[in-house]
Design a protein around this nucleic acid. Structure first.
Lengths: 335, 335
DNA sequence: CTGAAAGCGCTTACAG
DNA sequence: CTGAAAGCGCTTACAG
């Protein structure tokens, strides 16, 4: 690092103590400091282009003004948009965010938590990966505040901000059924992640509410790694059942994007032969020849509320649990 | 912050000095430290779940192991993918990345540089926004190493890693011409950003190499804010010229995604009526009924080289300027 | 083989 | 109104 100008340098130049400079530059005790001295100090600081050393300050005050954000995959637009919202909200409050992407990998997630802990973040916002439950339990022991977003571990008592995934999937499925389709495929990830298991449950419950017997072959669970070939296979299978499905619900944007690209190359027509609903909007869902009916998550709220909840937790001790509603946006693909 | 266990705590428990603990935990002077003492110290550290305080360490060593990354828009897949690559590469070298998104806003960019400077980052990777040239000049004065990516200021002598934008646009335009089209529209941003002006030049130079007189109405410059309506208008105009264009080159993924969604809603057919080439791949370019011929930037190389160049600059003083080649991926849209 | 001491750049009670 | 001093949690030359 480069030698920079310090409090002492300013103090020397102004002929006062470092303490005084510190008070002036932090606008403290303004009432009992000589106005002229203060003005002189500020002027010198400006001229010397003084920038305080956060590191030193942090060491003393135990405040780093850094938040840690761990998302499951930063190259997924859902998470990169969320990251941007969180960054903005944090910045408004004088905080900086260190973003890490766990890439749905438990070890990376652990590594990231450790690195962020090392950097003395004041709190975490985490979209946890599958299998990271014990890491979260460990994190609780450190007493450092954190809030989970998008995904939670239902057995753990933590702060969180999520959407009502069951309700969203239920409503989406209901909508499909109301348009007269009763053979509905579900393309989802094979995971125990709470958000996706809830979506699956919502789907199943909607079928049963409408007295539709569930055909197990309608449910396609894709492994999270290299999903593309599996999605294609799943769609092929759904469309070649003895009674082929006439609707498909995708449980997230990765699956729907992959799926739509494939369906686009087939001869089946949307919505004539098959109607489609997806969680999350995407370029693909907008671009598809029949714009896709989708579940729109309140991303802005998700990010803002998670951030302000975390900030609250940092200053006062509490637990915040918030469940938001998603909105079903009906378009051509389910006409 | 929570009171955590410190070197001193371990030292007390082990009946040695903090200095010794420091040596042991950093694996220094291993040859002249009693093996058993060392083992005992390590054991205690483990039992107490000791995590060193980076802040304190940084203050002393002047190494924070933090890199600052400023991208123009983190919600753009180009930049979020780049961010992820840079993060990975940094992590391999024990560095953490603080990512900031300037959102193409000069003031935000300035704010971000200041915040990251405050946090004592050891170096920067920056995709600068238009108008941030003076900020970069200021940054140079701090002597903190940085490398520009994707975009540069040609008048400034800085380290950078970019692609040969002129060449890429030239090749793409040439390819269009070689398929027999000679009325080509260019949809680009209205900006003095070097990467885009180079793409425009490459386009123009390719026309002239092929003895095609440039019609000024072929060039559509879109303002960076709220581009959607302007892109639609631009396409409408290109298609209703007295001699309508029969090809369009989009100079980035935002423009092409917006453009493709619109073209998809029109009656013109790709590539029969109009052929299309775009910079950058996207879900839209894959999903379009005629997959889009595009210029594929070497993102992985861009990110990795920028990171390792920066790391080199941190340890030794030098300037690195690298220009990579992009690849033209030919698909249906220009058949 | 090990420890005492100084110092990184700040903040903050305390004294005057 | 202002300064001396202690201390945050480390590292590292130096001494023994």
């Amino acid at each position: 690092m480069i030698k920079k100008v310090s409090l002492k340098d300013i103090a020397k130049k102004a002929g006062v103590s470092a303490a005084l400079v510190s008070y002036v530059l932090n606008d403290q005790k303004t009432d009992r400091i000589n106005k002229e001295t203060a003005a002189k100090i500020k002027e010198i600081a400006l001229k010397l282009n003084y920038r305080g050393n956060f590191i030193a300050k942090s060491l003393k005050t135990r405040k780093t003004f850094i938040l840690g954000l761990i998302v499951a995959d930063i190259s997924n637009p859902f998470f990169s948009s969320l990251a941007r919202i969180i960054e903005d909200e944090a910045e408004k409050n004088g905080y900086t965010v260190i973003i890490g992407s766990s890439d749905e990998n438990t070890e990376r997630s652990k590594k990231l938590i450790d690195v962020l802990l090392d950097h003395q973040v004041e709190g975490f916002i985490i979209a946890p990966t599958e299998g990271s439950e014990t890491q979260i339990i460990q994190l609780q022991k450190t007493k450092i505040p954190f809030v989970l977003v998008d995904r939670i571990f239902p057995r753990l008592k933590t702060s969180f901000v999520i959407i009502d995934n069951h309700q969203a999937a239920y409503e989406a499925t209901n909508h499909i059924i109301n348009t007269g389709r009763r053979r509905i495929g579900l393309v989802t990830f094979k995971t125990r992640l709470h958000n996706l298991t809830e979506r699956k449950k919502g789907f199943i419950d909607a079928l049963s509410s409408n007295t539709i017997g569930l055909n197990k072959k309608w449910i396609k669970e894709i492994s999270i790694h290299d999903p593309e070939p599996q999605v294609k296979k799943a769609i092929d299978e759904l469309l070649t059942l003895p009674s082929p499905v006439n609707a498909i619900l995708f449980t997230n944007n990765i699956l729907s994007t992959t799926g739509l690209i494939y369906i686009n190359s087939l001869t089946v027509k949307v919505p004539a032969d098959i109607s489609i609903v997806s969680f999350d909007q995407s370029a693909a869902s907008d671009l598809f020849y029949a714009p896709i009916t989708h579940i729109k998550q309140p991303l802005q709220d998700l990010g803002q509320i998670a951030t302000s909840a975390l900030l609250d937790m940092i200053s006062s001790d509490k637990t915040v649990t918030i469940t938001l509603k998603a909105e079903l946006v009906i378009r051509k693909s389910t006409e």
